[in-house]
């Protein structure tokens, strides 16, 4: 990019941030115009970040000084309950108002507690999701819990790193977990320890590999049937 172009984009973005979108729209060169638009989006995001951060800090300070705490989301509320009952299991840094990040070691005990405690009564496991967050972070399992009695909902996330990820099974706690865990095992190869019947559920038993992992390589043949890999001339 030439200096001239950069200068043009900078000026246009500044004008646009003040409300004059024509400055961007009137750039004649198509490439420069799209670059200017991208720069504008970036600038707007940064502006939103810097304005949001101090305000949230202020809020937490305010709620700390007042006697009434700010209304918590169920996730924050139950993160506190779990942390007091099972110390060192909740990862405070990674938990937020949308989910609770747990360590995997005591997960079975926590699950039992969440289902049976009268204040929690999470009698319904609604979904188990496996996520591959890439090489650096590894795999993660997410549980969506719901209580029919109290009608509260939480999401629990448990990371399981490594090539042979393992996690305690909650199939004995919530019976529906049986198939959910089998599906997650089928797609991600996460071993649910303590599961009574951990087999593949969708793919055939003799399938090789874990299809939803980022590093999945499709097998070349299946029972002598060729799986074409390179498809040139398509699209």
């Amino acid at each position: 990019m030439t200096d001239n172009q950069e200068q043009l984009i900078k000026e246009a973005v500044e004008k646009a941030l003040q409300g004059d979108m024509d400055a961007v729209n009137n750039i004649e060169d198509r490439v420069t115009r799209s670059k200017a638009k991208a720069a504008l989006v970036k600038a707007k995001r940064e502006a939103a970040k810097t304005s949001a951060e101090p305000s949230s800090k202020e809020k937490s300070e305010e709620s700390g000084s007042e006697s009434k705490p700010a209304p918590q989301s169920p996730n924050q509320q139950f993160a506190g309950i779990i942390a007091s009952r099972f110390p060192k299991t909740v990862d405070e840094e990674l938990s937020s108002e949308t989910h609770i990040q747990l360590q995997s070691e005591k997960w079975l005990d926590i699950a039992q507690y969440l289902r049976d405690d009268p204040a929690c009564l999470f009698d319904s496991l609604q979904c188990i999701t496996g996520v591959d967050l890439g090489e650096d972070v590894g795999l993660e399992v997410r549980y969506n819990l719901h209580s029919m009695t109290h009608r509260h909902v939480i999401e629990i996330r448990i990371a399981c790193a490594g090539k042979n990820p393992k996690i305690p099974s909650v199939e004995a706690v919530w019976r529906i977990g049986d198939w959910f865990e089998r599906e997650t095992y089928d797609m991600f190869g996460i071993e649910f320890q303590g599961h009574r019947d951990l087999r593949r559920i969708l793919l055939p038993d003799d399938w090789e590999g874990w299809p939803l992992r980022k590093d999945y390589e499709v097998q070349e043949t299946y029972h002598g049937i060729v799986v074409p890999k390179v498809k040139e001339g398509w699209e």
Binding site: L203, P211, Y216, V218, I225, V226, V227, P228, K231, W234
Partner: peptide, 15 residues
Amino acid sequence: YWQHGYHVLKGVDLV
């Protein structure tokens, strides 16, 4: 499923 269906047979004439 031609390109990304890892589990789909690419034409029944293969079997």
